[in-house]
Design a protein around this nucleic acid. Structure first.
Length: 135
DNA sequence: GCCAACGTTGGC
DNA sequence: GCCAACGTTGGC
C-alpha cells in the first residue's frame, strides 16, 4: 500500500466539511506532478489531509475509495480526480513546524517543495506523522 | 500583505 | 528551444 498527503485550504475545503460529506471528489488539480501522483493512487491507499494557509497542520487520515478518472470540472483530458473518504481525525493535529523540525521528515515534499498539493509519503514518514499525532 | 519558489506562456 | 514575463501557491 502507498501513502500520500494532500493539501486543502480549509477556506475552500476543510476536514470538517469532508467529515460531513463522507467522501470527496478531489478535483481541481492543475499541476502535472500532482496529477501524476493522483494517477498512482490505488483503492485503500491512506492519505494524510493537510490544511494549508490557515492551520498549516495535518488534521486527519483519509483513504482512496475510487481511482483516477477524467476531471468532470474540465473538458481537458489532461486532468483527473480521485475519490477520498475520511478514516479518522488525528487525536492531535501535527503542525508544519513539528514536521519541519523532525530530522526524519526533512525529505518530504511538504518541506522541500512547498507548492506541490498532492505528494507521496514513504511508509516510515506516514508512520512518524501518525506517531506524532498521538504524543 | 509580502515575497520566494516554481510552473506556464509566448515572443523570438 | 531559450528565456523573460507573468501568475499562483503558500509560508511567514
Amino acid at each position: 500500500m502507498n501513502h500520500w498527503l494532500v493539501k486543502s485550504e480549509p477556506f475552500k475545503y476543510s476536514w470538517t466539511k469532508f467529515l460531513k460529506d463522507g467522501n470527496a471528489v478531489w478535483d481541481g488539480v492543475r499541476n502535472y506532478q500532482a496529477r501524476n501522483n493522483l494517477k498512482a493512487m490505488k483503492t485503500d491507499d491512506l492519505v494524510l489531509f493537510y490544511h494549508s494557509n490557515e492551520g498549516m497542520e495535518v488534521v486527519g487520515v483519509a483513504k482512496v475509495v475510487k481511482e483516477f478518472y477524467q476531471d468532470p470540472t474540465t473538458d481537458n483530458p489532461n486532468w483527473v480526480v480521485v475519490e477520498l473518504a475520511p478514516v479518522e481525525a488525528l487525536q492531535k493535529p501535527v503542525s508544519l513546524a513539528e514536521i519541519k523540525s523532525h530530522p526524519q521528515l526533512s525529505e518530504i515534499a511538504l518541506v522541500r517543495q512547498g507548492r506541490l498539493s498532492v505528494m507521496p509519503l514513504r511508509d516510515f514518514e506516514f508512520d512518524i506523522i501518525l506517531t506524532l499525532s498521538r504524543l
